[in-house]
Structures are given as structure tokens and as C-alpha cells.
Simulated scan of single mutants.
Amino acid sequence: MRQIVLDTETTGLNPRTGDRVIEIGCVEIFNRKLTGNNFHRYINPERDSDEAALAVHGLTTEFLSDKPKFHEIAEELRAFVQDAEVIIHNAPFDLGFLNHEFERLGLPPFVSHCSNVIDTLVNAKELHPGKRNSLDALCDRYGISNAHRKLHGALLDSELLADVYLAMTRGQNMLSMDVEVEEAGGGALLEAVPLGEIIVVSAAADELAEHDAVLAALDKGVKGECVWRKYSPQG
């Protein structure tokens, strides 16, 4: 399965009042492995960032002035995410901006090019109700280093979120074990080890008699038939 972890930086909070996308970062995952095939673009929004937004991402108007405009990278972005499952933290925010940018160009909304969208904020709230579920909090919870994250950056945040997503969704989904062994020459991943044949050992006659004696004592205590009789082979 091809998945794209995506993040954006913007000039502010609301595309309907003129705020624009200024950075897009995408990290590709294929069959739960990071491929290194990433997509990253800075974009000239043709306007200044709000002071609060600038304090978050640090991308100045001067820095962005010679970067391509959104219409110049829209087709590249569309092709990169085409038919992939897109993973976003707080998806309504990023999708609201991307859909708006596509609509400004007379194109179908961004989400129409994706096979599905996963919101890791929703997933995290289900897994960790009542706890902080920001990207920084999830990095701490899953032991992912974010010490180099001084400012928000779309590609950096996508890389962190990719690690968080893989950690958050790592679980046993079949009756086998993935055994990882560290060797002197490097790590080696052994193949899944299937469970052996299940052996059923029946109780011996004396064990059944002792079990029935315990049930009889319970019957006497409740002055009737105890509930365990319903499940007892002797009942």
C-alpha cells in the first residue's frame, strides 16, 4: 500500500480570508516502509504571513519571494499523491487550505486525487483519550526524538509524523511473531515465526473428581446449583 504523510505551513489560519499555503512536505511510505521518495516545495503566497504564523514557521516574505507560486507546483503535487492514502495530523486544517488552493485554479479539490485520508489526531484521541495529542506530545509518547524541531517545517513535521504513525499503528495482527535480532554485523530481521500446533491436554479422572467435589461444595454454599455447573463437563 502506498501512503503519503503530508503537512503544510500557511500564512495564517483561514484560507477563506486570504491565507495561503507557503510550504508543503510529503513523505512516502510503501508497505509500511519509508522509501525516501519525498516531495517538498516552498511556495510564494504573494502576501505576508500573520505575525503569529510567522513565529511558528519562520518563513519570511523575503525568503519566499523567489519561490514558485502554487499554480506552478499544483500538477507535481497532484501527481505525487495520486491514488495514495494520505496521512495528516489535524487533517481538516491542511485539507481546507489545499482544497481551496486547487479550487482557486479551477481544479477538482485536492482530496479527489487521494484514495483515502487518515487523520492521526483523531486516531491519537481514540488511543489516548484525555491526553495531549499534539505532534510533540506523540513524539514524546512513542520515543521519537524531535529535539531538532525548533520551528515548524512541513517536511520535518511530515518525517516526524511518519515515524509516529508507524509506531502508533504497530501491532500484532496475526498469530505470529516478528523477531528482530541484533548481530555483530548489523540488525537482522527473521521471518515471522508461526505458532506450533496447539496441544490439548484433557483432565485425568482424579482431577475431574476433585473438580466435581469443589462444585459440590459451592452447591452446598448457595443451597442450589452454582453457576459453574453450566460449564462443567460433570454437570
Rank of each mutant, 00 (worst) to 15 (best):
R20N: 10
K150Q: 08
L34Y: 02
R78F: 07
Y142C: 01
R104C: 09
G130H: 12
T35G: 06
Y165W: 06
R41W: 00
L13C: 14
R170V: 06
E75H: 11
E46F: 07
L155C: 04
S202N: 15
F110I: 01
L175G: 07
S49P: 04
V179P: 01
L127N: 09
E197A: 07
E28P: 00
I144H: 03
L218V: 02
N116C: 05
L195F: 14
P15R: 00
D163H: 08
G106I: 03
L195M: 12
T35N: 07
H100R: 10
M1F: 04
A147L: 05
Q82F: 11
G130A: 13
V222R: 14
A203F: 13
S134R: 00
D136K: 00
E126N: 11
R78Y: 04
P92M: 10
Y165C: 06
S134A: 02
K67A: 08
V181R: 05
P109Q: 03
D178N: 08
A184M: 12
I29Q: 11
P108Q: 07
F63E: 15
L107K: 10
E62I: 15
N146V: 00
K131S: 10
R104W: 03
D219I: 00
N116K: 15
G187R: 09
I24Y: 03
A74K: 06
E101Y: 13
K220T: 03
R2G: 08
S134G: 13
L59P: 03
A154F: 15
L175N: 15
L135P: 12
E191T: 09
N31K: 14
Y142M: 02
V179W: 07
L155F: 13
A217V: 09
G235S: 11
D157G: 11
T60A: 15
V56A: 11
F102C: 05
K220Y: 03
G185I: 03
L34G: 00
E197C: 04
V222N: 13
K150S: 03
V200R: 14
L6G: 00
L155Y: 06
G143E: 02
A203I: 10
L215I: 11
H100Q: 14
F39W: 10
G36P: 01
G196F: 03
H57T: 14
V201G: 03
L59H: 11
E46A: 13
V81F: 10
V56E: 04
S65V: 02
R149G: 00
P233D: 01
I144R: 01
